[in-house]
Amino acid sequence: MNETAIVLVRSIIAFGTLLIFTRFLGKQQVSQITFFDYILGITIGSMAANLSTDIATDAWPNWVGLLSWTVMVYIFQKVTVKSRQASVYIDGEPVIVIMNGEIMDEVMKKLRFRLSDLQEQLREKGVFDINEVEYAVVEKDGQLSILKKAEYLPLTPKDINVRPEYKGIATELIYDGEIVKSNLKQLNKDEAWLKEQIAAKGFNEFAEVFLAVIAPNGSLFIDGFDDKMENPIDITDFKGLK
């Protein structure tokens, strides 16, 4: 019995299965997962690990376990998307811990959320003076969202009646030396035009360009593979890399 070959084959099965199953479960953001989702992730991961390396057990029961948990997570996702009540019941809901600048201590006790936790999360949000906070909400994933009092909010262009230019999303034209032809076509541009633009920045070939993006206002950002800096700033003090 070749244990290396067995682990290799079972790892391929575990890896492939996990990849397919997680794609099937969709794109729920990791930062938005609830504590239960987190535990689910660990459990499914643990089953995949057993499937991969625990050769004392049959691969099949581990795989069926992986499938069962994935199906259950999928059903939960479907139910919570369809029913708001079910979503609140299963995933919980955001809770206000600072209301009109006042700490809701009874609510915090219920949540088992300590004052030090609140202070820590406020500091992480850049708030060092609790006086600045109008509202603070503990989200389903345990993260704190805050709304500062009006006098502490940053000034926006709207406050001073300025209408900023539309920004939008930039489009990649060259990525890692390769032209993104679909984007070029979408913008009604051709390779000859792109060649002109990179030539203006001193590049002769597309392959010399690491990244080229165009903003909705037409401004181009072009960066080559060769960093032409004469005196780059070196911030490391680790001698081993020098």
Partner: peptide, 14 residues
């Protein structure tokens, strides 16, 4: 036989 079935059975059974 062992070489053929090693990927689908428990090591302890072998």
């Amino acid at each position: 036989v062992k070489k053929r079935i090693q990927f689908s059975v428990e090591r302890n059974e072998l």
